[in-house]
Structures are given as structure tokens and as C-alpha cells.
């Protein structure tokens, strides 16, 4: 374990570095949110934690989901929450202390849940590390060697069109990773699965139905929220301090 020189010599894996960076930001601000008792600060910490989470999602290659996370969550949901905070922010409610007993109970229960979940997460040996990069590298090397061998055999220096076409997606994979394309996600939502074409012949409709259900759901929610949150006009009219609100 005590190999400090290795730190200088070995190649640092930047994906890993960024993973640790973003996950520490996400976890750190989530923790800060729990510890803080001021609701305005909590909202701010939540924004940072969620933004860092979107960074984590980018790191898994789900670019569209990450973007949506940033837009809907950070841009929408949290702004909604901050509105709520502002609407209810009176001096007495900005910071409310909880009893020490509740804290200790929550920490004990939460701690044991965390221990359980972490243990489960690390219980599958194959999940502890990823051989994706090594595999990809091996694939590229094999393809390159094959092409070099072919070139040497034909005694030429230019790539043929077929070879270039074979090499291009591989190099793109090395350079850009393997992101889920936005068009794939969109087509999946309207019922066409380009990533698994074999599913189309079976009368499989992709995610069209859930998509519709969610849209109807959103509509219902909007109506419901508007109904719940509307002020009771008659009540406000009758109470004298209603105007003060």
C-alpha cells in the first residue's frame, strides 16, 4: 500500500478523479444540508448537491438525463422550493431546532441503513471495478494491428475506405465514450427502439404508453396544484387582517 512514488509514475485515471470530485461535492453539500438548520441555506446546498449529481450522471454516459436533471431539477423543482421558502420565510420558521434525541435516533437508524446499503453495494466483486477501458483499449489495439498487418501485406500506406469505416466508430468510442444519444431517447419515448431493433418486430411499443401516462399525470398535477394553492378568496375578504397578507 505504501507506494507514493507510484502516484507520480502511474497514469491517473481522470474519469475516477472526476467521479470522486463530483461525488464529494454532492455528498458534502447533502450533508451540509442535513446539518444546517437554516432553511434558506438548506435550499442553496440542495441546488449545489443536485447540480453535482447531474455531473455524476454525465459521468455514466447518460448525457440527456444529466441535462434534464440540470434543467428540471436544478432549474425547476428547486426554484419552486425556493419560492416556497420565500413565501413562508418568517423569522420563527427560518431556523427551527430539533431535539437532540431525534437527531441521535435518526443518526443511528440512518447510519445502520447506510452501512447495510454500502455493504450490499460492495458485495458483488464484479461491480467493484470496471474493465471497460481495458477492453476498449484491447479492441482498438487489435483493430490497429490487423490494419497494420494488412497494410504491410499489400505494401501500401493509405487506409482503404472499409478500414477507415471500421476504425472510425472505435476511435469515436475512445474519444467521446458511449453516450446515449438524445435521438435514441426521443425515439424510445415515441415507440421506436433503435438500440434494440429486434424488439420492434414483436409488437413492442417502446415507452409510448408510459410517456402518455406521465403527460396526463403532469396535467392532473398542474390542475391539482393550482387548485390546492389558490387562496380562499371568500375567507380573505371576511377577515380584517386578510389585506395585510
Amino acid at each position: 500500500m505504501t507506494n507514493f512514488p507510484l502516484l507520480l509514475a502511474a497514469e491517473i485515471n481522470w474519469h475516477t478523479v472526476f467521479f470522486y470530485l463530483t461525488s464529494f461535492i454532492a455528498c458534502g453539500f447533502a450533508l451540509a444540508m442535513v446539518v444546517s438548520s437554516n432553511v434558506v441555506r438548506m435550499a442553496f446546498f440542495l441546488v449545489l448537491s443536485l447540480a453535482a449529481t447531474s455531473g455524476l450522471i454525465f459521468l455514466t454516459g447518460a448525457h440527456f438525463v444529466g441535462a434534464m436533471q440540470l434543467m428540471i431539477y436544478v432549474g425547476g423543482t428547486v426554484v419552486l422550493l425556493i419560492f416556497g421558502v420565500m413565501l413562508t420565510a418568517q423569522q420563527a420558521f427560518i431556523s427551527m431546532k430539533t431535539k437532540a434525541g431525534d437527531w441521535i435516533l435518526a443518526l443511528i437508524v440512518g447510519g445502520s441503513l447506510l452501512a447495510l446499503l454500502t455493504q450490499i453495494a460492495f458485495s458483488v466483486p464484479a461491480w467493484r471495478s470496471s474493465d471497460y477501458q481495458a477492453r476498449l483499449q484491447a479492441e482498438v489495439t487489435a483493430a490497429e494491428e490487423e490494419i497494420i498487418a494488412a497494410m504491410a501485406a499489400d505494401n501500401r500506406t493509405e487506409l482503404t475506405a472499409a478500414e477507415a469505416a471500421k476504425l472510425r466508430p472505435l476511435l469515436a468510442k475512445v474519444k467521446y465514450g458511449q453516450p446515449e444519444l438524445t435521438s435514441q431517447v426521443g425515439l424510445g419515448l415515441v415507440g421506436v427502439r433503435v438500440d434494440k431493433p429486434e424488439l420492434d418486430s414483436l409488437g413492442y411499443s417502446g415507452y409510448l404508453l408510459p410517456f402518455e401516462i406521465v403527460s396526463v399525470h403532469l396535467l392532473v398535477v398542474l390542475v391539482g396544484a393550482a387548485y390546492l394553492a389558490r387562496s380562499k378568496r371568500s375567507a380573505v375578504m371576511q377577515t380584517p387582517e386578510g389585506d395585510a397578507r
Binding site: K99, A100, G101, D102, W103, I104, L105, L107
Partner: peptide, 21 residues
């Protein structure tokens, strides 16, 4: 950390915890 929170920084009140449990 918990001991510090309860007896050094006094963030959590020990008597309160005693009452809860």
C-alpha cells in the same frame, strides 16, 4: 464526533437525549 457534539460543542443537549431515551 458524537461525544464532541454533545459535550464539547454542546450542539446536542445531553439532558434532552436522556429524556427522549
Amino acid at each position: 464526533f458524537l461525544a464532541s457534539a454533545m459535550y464539547l460543542w454542546r450542539v446536542l443537549d445531553p439532558t434532552d437525549a436522556r429524556r427522549t431515551f
